[in-house]
Design a protein around this nucleic acid. Structure first.
Length: 621
DNA sequence: GGTCACACAGTTTTT
DNA sequence: CTGTGTGACC
């Protein structure tokens, strides 16, 4: 057990063993960050004999949380320690942590434990409800825009009162009217949105210090990953939870902050230093992932950013293969180039697997052509992203039944049920009565409630198993049943489905239970945290990447550049960047100029490109 | 209560 | 171009 620290390099060792006091870890791409976090927890438990349950680790996604906890558990079992539910560390996202806190202690501030968690779609329904009540024309003011505006106000912790004092112009003044009504409707529905989970927890902590103290006492050690992508509320929460024992360790990388469009603020990394002036800062600068060529390219691009520090990475890996640029005639040709390169590589490298390849793009809309061409050449692919499991119609329908049973003030859920059909909604109400009279909430398992409600309204009869599209819907309901079996308590089930995105995997792949032999297609955002031997970055054109909406604002442009940096650093061995002369977009054929990011690569990369050899470097200002 | 036609918008995304 | 959402009409 003493030897596990030997597996770390000097920088990593320093991070793991510095276990007390405020700590900032600047973890570069591919520097073994996840491993360091796992080892840090192991070190606390094994060497410092810290009670595992007094450790809190906050991650960016639930998937990351799950993987982290599994790795910790496994390592502890190797050291003859097994974790139970009671003594396990708390590992989760800010949202799941706050949901748990509010279920337990929300009653202090008037939140009932069976509250519903509304997703973006539900939020828009509530906004529409508010707009109807206020008689605001939904043609001039779109509910979607309003709900986004309210959400970003909340992210900056601007309440309705403050908002109305700063609102300027037609749209903002309308929002100023809608916002307070939205909040009171949410209360009527006994619901909170994702932003409220954080804000209400902060409100609870500030109003009832004894509640805060309970959690401060529980969580003696607080670790927060991906700190560059925290928003203001998450920054506040970190501070509140950690300020008593001051054993807070935040981990992040300025250059990988890519979520400012939803309220993340990389400056939180700097603010932490002001709040904790004695914080120790550790860099993790050795990269284990990529070749020198790839790191050089990444650095060459990201060093153009001026509003944040850039960590320079080094590696012991060899120089590696050249980065290749390709100018395609069209988006089809771009996809065919990719296929050609994959086939070539497969022919000469027996260890090569299609799962070593990722194609990264800026917008989901770009996946369409790629899919068509991949299909045409019979190259298997996995598409990541798109419509999420719990947002599918049939899944939401069934969930609405359960959501309403758990929280009968949730009229948003009920109006969804009415949309299935008036007669079915009537039938359902009969079941609601039975449910209430016999108190099924307490003495029936989720799966039984689900099956009873679904059969009561004959929901499955809406779909025909012989129709392939319907069959997929029925499969999805089956899939949901298997999650329902895992969570016999209805409230817990609902919390799980609102906060945890189901790992998306088509049914046939799931049966085999192995990672499929297929190329991964996804957005740059989706690739965060992943790595592939061979990476294609496609659509490297002004207006595509950087995206057209980001061209005129330096802050937005720098975020695009960070996204480009994230893309480059996903590659372990081989990186391609492609751009098309002409591209069909929204039914129009456009001619785009080559992305500025291409011109920000090291000169040697550009010189080898036929398309660029004789071209002057354009001025982008 | 269900279907069809038209309008219209159209980044990135997890919680 | 394509998916979604709304409103009119049977």
């Amino acid at each position: 057990m003493d030897t596990f620290l030997n597996e770390l390099n000097r920088e990593q060792h320093a991070v793991v063993t510095h276990y007390q006091g405020p700590t900032i870890v600047l973890a570069g791409a591919g520097s073994g960050k996840t491993r360091v976090l796992v080892f840090k927890v192991l070190y606390l438990i094994l060497q410092q004999h810290v009670d595992p349950s007094s450790i809190l680790m906050v991650t960016f996604t639930n998937k990351a949380a799950h993987e982290m906890l599994e790795r910790i558990k496994k390592a502890l079992i190797d050291n003859a320690i097994s974790l139970t539910k009671q003594n396990a560390p708390t590992v989760g996202t800010f949202h799941s942590l706050c949901a748990r806190i509010l279920r337990r202690d929300g009653h202090y501030i008037g939140i009932m434990p069976n509250f519903a968690i509304y997703d973006t779609h539900d939020q828009q329904e509530v906004v529409k409800e508010a707009m109807e009540k206020l008689d605001i024309n939904s043609k001039n003011i779109r509910a979607k825009a309003v709900s986004q505006t309210i959400s970003s106000a909340k992210n900056q912790m601007v309440d309705p009162y403050v908002y109305s004092s700063i609102a300027r112009g037609y749209f903002q003044e309308a929002v100023a009217q809608i916002y307070p009504l939205y909040q009171s409707l949410m209360k009527d529905h006994n619901a909170v949105d994702f932003d409220d989970l954080l804000l209400e927890t902060i409100r609870l902590f500030k109003k009832y210090p004894e509640v805060l103290e309970k959690y401060q006492e529980k969580f003696q050690y607080v670790l927060v990953d991906e700190y560059q992508d925290t928003n203001h509320a998450q920054y506040e929460l970190t501070k509140l939870l950690g300020e008593k024992h001051r054993n807070i360790c935040i981990v992040g990388d300025f250059s990988q902050s890519i979520y400012s469009f939803r309220g993340a603020d990389f400056r939180n990394l700097e603010k932490f230093k002001n709040d904790f002036p004695d914080a120790a800062t550790f860099p993790l600068s050795q990269n284990y992932r990529s070749t020198q060529n790839i790191l050089d390219a990444a650095f060459s691009v990201i060093s153009r950013n001026t509003t944040h520090p850039v960590l320079s990475l080094w590696t012991e890996n060899h120089q590696g293969e050249d980065i290749e640029l390709y100018e395609a005639e069209s988006e089809q040709n771009e996809a065919e180039f990719i296929i050609q390169k994959i086939v070539e590589r497969a022919a000469r490298d027996p260890h090569f697997s299609l799962s070593d390849v990722a194609v990264l793009y800026r917008m989901n809309a770009q996946s369409r052509t790629l899919e068509e061409v991949f299909l045409h050449h019979s190259i298997p692919y996995t598409l990541v992203g798109g419509t999420r499991f719990y947002e599918r119609k049939e899944v939401k329908d069934v969930l609405s039944l359960l959501a309403f049973l758990a929280n009968q003030k949730d009229t948003i859920a009920f109006s969804r049920i009415e949309k299935i059909g008036k007669r079915r909604a009537q039938k359902f109400l009969e079941y609601v009565n039975e449910f209430n009279e016999k108190n099924y909430l307490e003495n029936k398992a989720t799966i039984d409630i689900l099956d009873e409600a679904v059969s009561k309204i004959e929901y499955l009869a809406l779909y025909d198993a012989n129709n392939p599209e319907d069959k997929a819907r029925l499969e999805n309901i089956k899939e949901m049943r298997s999650v329902a079996i895992e969570f016999p308590e209805l409230i817990e089930f609902l919390e799980n489905v609102s906060l945890v995105e189901q790992e998306y995997m088509p049914a046939e792949q799931k049966k085999n239970g192995v990672r499929p032999e297929a190329v991964t297609l996804m957005t740059f955002h989706g690739a965060k945290g992943l790595e592939f031997k061979m990476v294609f970055m496609v659509g490297m054109e002004e207006g595509m990447f950087p995206h057209s909406q980001a061209l005129f604002d330096n802050g937005d442009l720098e975020e695009e550049r960070r996204l480009c940096y994230v893309g480059i650093t996903r590659a372990k061995e081989k990186l391609f960047m492609t751009f098309a002369k002409r591209r069909l977009f929204f039914g129009q054929r456009n001619t785009n100029t080559i992305s500025r990011f291409i011109f920000e690569l090291p000169e040697s990369v550009r010189e080898r490109s036929i398309a660029l050899r004789d071209q002057d470097v354009p001025e982008y200002f």
